[in-house]
């Protein structure tokens, strides 16, 4: 299959920009990253279908038209990414209303557990297990 260099370069740029944004702290940038990578993925599906062919009208020989399957898949993928992006936008709005900022935070409980053993109040669990074990 001949490879369209322009598309490949465009895809590389879109993917790297998208994943760069995905790794940011700001929720808005993460969202834009997801939108970008989503476009990249859909474009990639098109590129996977091979070079463009004739429009599929009556009389076109079957071999000359574009492969319709990647287009159908891209359509489905577009609908899905669109729906989920809308959900994510609503959630981001909710998050900004509830938390008053749009920063993506670390796992709170995880940080608590990491710090717990150093503090003097040892978790109750450890103490009572020792009592029962001896």
């Amino acid at each position: 299959m001949p490879i369209n260099t322009t598309l490949v370069v465009a895809l590389a740029v879109i993917y790297s920009a998208g994943f760069y944004l995905l790794m940011q702290r700001s929720l808005m940038r993460v969202l834009l990253g997801i939108v970008l990578v989503g476009h990249g993925a859909n474009l990639f599906l098109q590129a996977a279908g091979g070079p463009a062919g004739e429009p599929a009208t009556a009389g076109t020989p079957i071999g000359a038209v574009s492969d319709p399957l990647p287009q159908a898949m891209a359509l489905t993928a577009i609908v899905i990414t669109f729906a989920v992006t809308v959900l994510l936008l609503a959630l981001a709005y909710r998050s900004s209303v509830l938390l008053n900022d749009d920063e993506v935070r670390d796992d709170v409980e995880d940080r608590r557990i990491r710090q717990a053993p150093e503090s003097e109040d040892e978790p109750a669990s450890v103490i009572s297990l020792r009592e029962d074990g001896q």
Binding site: V37, L45, A48, L88
Partner: peptide, 21 residues
């Protein structure tokens, strides 16, 4: 949860494109 799920979704589309190509 949603962002992680979405990231894997996008990688899945990429995989399908690669497999199809």
């Amino acid at each position: 949860y949603v962002i992680t799920g979405l990231t894997s979704t996008l990688l899945f589309i990429t995989l399908i494109a690669l497999v199809y190509a």
